[in-house]
Write a protein that binds this DNA or RNA. Sequence first.
RNA 1: AGGUCUAUAGUGUAACGGUUAGCACUGCUGAUUUUGAUUCAGUAAGUGAGGGUUCAAAUCCUUCUAGACCUACCA
Length: 568
Amino acid sequence: MNVQAAGQNHFIMSNQEEEKDFIREIIAEDLASGKHETTITRFPPEPNGYLHIGHAKAICLSFGIAQENAASGARCHLRFDDTNPAKEDVEYVERIKEDVRWLGFDWGDHLFFASDYFDYFYDCAVHLIKEGLAYVDLQTVEEVRENRGNVKVTGTNSPHRDSSVDDNLALFEQMKSGELGEGKAILRAKIDMTSSNMNMRDPVIYRVMHETHHNTGDAWKIYPMYDFAHPLEDAKECITHSLCTLEFEEHRPFYDWAVANCPTASTPRQIEFSRLNLNYTVMSKRKVLELVNDKVVSGWDDPRLLTISGLRRRGYTAESIRHFCHRVGITKFKGITDMSVLENEVRQHLNKVAERRMAVMNPLKVTLTNWEQGRVEIMEANNNPEDKQAGTRQIALGKQVYVERDDFMEDPPKKFFRLGIGRSVRLRGGYIITCNEVVKDADGNVTELLCEYIPDTVGQNAPEGIKCKAAIHWVSVEHGLDAEVRVYDRLFSDENPDGFEGGFRACLNEDSLTLQSAKVEPSLGEVEPGYRCQFERLGYYCTDIKDHVKGEKLVFNRTVGLRDSWKK
RNA sequence: AGGUCUAUAGUGUAACGGUUAGCACUGCUGAUUUUGAUUCAGUAAGUGAGGGUUCAAAUCCUUCUAGACCUACCA
């Protein structure tokens, strides 16, 4: 664990560059011009699902900016935007906090809930009514929709638009008390029904909802809409820069309207950036929830998903996710990032910090014919050949070992460097062996290899006349442990390259998850959950955080495969 | 189609009117290698299209094209 931590620091330190995206430039200017003394950002998730890699981008941005400007007292608030009790749940609150923390960010004392501001929102609504800037609309849902018009048809005014302040106040009170039921009335801002921006056609700011809220219980029968609540939340918390994704661009005029027309403590500025798009995957909460509910996946933290908890369970490091977010950058351009960029980041990080371990997924028994019966020799192997600090470990070698079935070919092509009849190969960290004979069963399947080890080849080059171009992984039959390995397909199908729309459910069925038993070296018997190592030639594996030991077997998830150019 | 926004190698980005358009990943070639990994070296590939302003345009103007988002009593 300590080794990993040290490596992680190195990884992060060596990759800090001073590139500024357009948002950081705006902030730097505001600081330089004295418009703001410091910068206060916020990350405002709705507790209606787990965080995913897309949220990580927003988290790295808002919390990252706060960290970078810490000298001036900058901070980033974690605020739960819980204004719709119908969709939200406390479970999500805890999971979100856990994920933000795991990603390496800290909100300090600045944890907030939009629901704690319900009184404030209400006061603002009353203020608007008194100013003649809001009115209670008694039209039906259909009428409201009809009268809003559409992109081509301009909206028409509600018959209730010019009700008196006193009437509006009284009606709003009836909404609040529950006298006016759900769907019977809404409070709307009075702006402009002819605006080309649909969000300015007298947007709804309060609706009646007789739902129990996870925080305020049954205290309220009316709840503010996001468009109304969000600017007020930001203003109340004195957020200077409110960073959100591009789809809120057209909401900004109303955001500014609300701040300008309500009694606010500050004037926050909303700035939009492009959300993360990854190809071959599905991130939307709606779809993931569907997969969870239908038990297509084991939960929000299923390692096949791109949720933060799924990635964590799969073995991704927080560092690699942060680095990935830094690499895709912050722009207004809606590009699609290739999944391989993400995978490349973990691979790069894990290569530095993960210890090397040997495992055999598809075992083929090898008997060393010239090895004395009962003899056991301890091999000393590097934990990480590139990092001497990682130390060494001891591995017992006996008369019989398992090797990967793929490492033997009866009729090998020219470029195959591993075992074949008459060929030599090194047992990694140990002796060079030569294959003399193949044992087959009645059906002609290879069941065992009879090999000869060549003495004095541990740590030595191959003797004259012996060609040895590869070192393969092996596990002693006598000493090896049984483990279970889960190989998850990357979350995509090549047949649905455009984001899974129709096919993602199918891709997530059993084909995307292969359970395999494996033989692993004895040193893996003592590792902690979350331990990551490289199974030579197979990729990087992580002990499953949930199912570290399942029955008698260790459980590993594959984090990411090795690059394997020779297979192409 | 109404609005808002975007357009730089395959991908993600930098260049803020001024050298030869920079970087990273990917690709390809080669070297090292007790992991066909890693590492290292080399190499290929770009300003969506047309017009204009200017001594000078990726950058400013204009037309076109392509894409994204918006049209919820969700956030």
